[in-house]
Amino acid sequence: MLPEVTAVRYVTPLREGGSLPGIVEADDLGTYVMKFTGAGQGRKTLVAEVVCGQLGRRLGLRVPDLVRIQLDPVIGLSEPDQEVQELLKASGGLNLGMDYLPGSLGFDPLAFAVGSAEAGHVVWFDALIGNVDRSWRNPNLLVWHGRLWLIDHGATMIWHHSWRGLEAAAAKPYDASDHALAPFAPDVAAAAEALAPRITEELLTEVVADIPDEWLVDEPGFDGPAAVRRAYVEVLLERAATVGEKITVGERAGKGPSQAPDWLRVWVDGKAGT
Rank of each mutant, 00 (worst) to 15 (best):
85 Q>G: 15
66 L>S: 05
44 K>Q: 15
35 K>L: 03
144 W>F: 14
93 G>F: 06
182 A>I: 02
141 L>W: 06
79 E>M: 08
35 K>F: 02
146 G>A: 11
19 S>H: 12
200 T>K: 08
160 H>I: 07
238 E>P: 00
200 T>M: 08
124 W>N: 01
228 V>W: 02
64 P>D: 09
86 E>R: 15
22 G>V: 04
215 W>P: 04
257 P>T: 09
67 V>Q: 07
35 K>S: 04
179 H>C: 04
181 L>Q: 01
213 D>S: 11
31 T>H: 06
196 A>R: 11
226 A>T: 13
27 D>V: 11
24 V>G: 00
209 A>Q: 12
234 E>Q: 15
227 A>D: 15
261 P>M: 07
141 L>H: 13
261 P>W: 09
2 L>R: 03
173 P>N: 08
234 E>N: 14
88 L>V: 03
70 Q>T: 08
188 V>Y: 00
15 R>H: 13
197 P>R: 09
146 G>C: 10
89 K>M: 13
81 D>A: 14
14 L>V: 12
200 T>F: 07
139 P>W: 06
243 V>R: 03
266 V>I: 14
16 E>Y: 10
62 R>S: 14
63 V>C: 03
198 R>D: 08
3 P>R: 10
271 K>W: 12
47 V>Q: 05
129 I>W: 03
146 G>Q: 10
220 P>E: 11
195 L>M: 15
84 V>L: 06
55 L>P: 01
204 L>E: 05
247 I>T: 05
95 N>A: 08
91 S>A: 07
273 G>L: 15
95 N>I: 07
188 V>A: 03
69 I>L: 15
15 R>N: 12
85 Q>F: 10
194 A>M: 08
103 G>W: 09
97 G>K: 04
234 E>G: 04
204 L>M: 11
183 P>T: 12
137 R>M: 14
261 P>Q: 07
58 R>H: 10
142 L>K: 06
201 E>C: 08
86 E>I: 10
176 A>R: 02
191 A>P: 01
41 Q>L: 14
103 G>H: 09
64 P>T: 09
224 G>L: 06
202 E>L: 13
108 D>C: 13
44 K>A: 14
47 V>T: 13
262 D>S: 13
269 D>W: 14
100 Y>S: 03
135 S>H: 09
129 I>Y: 01
124 W>K: 03
243 V>A: 01
73 P>D: 03
267 W>E: 10
156 T>M: 02
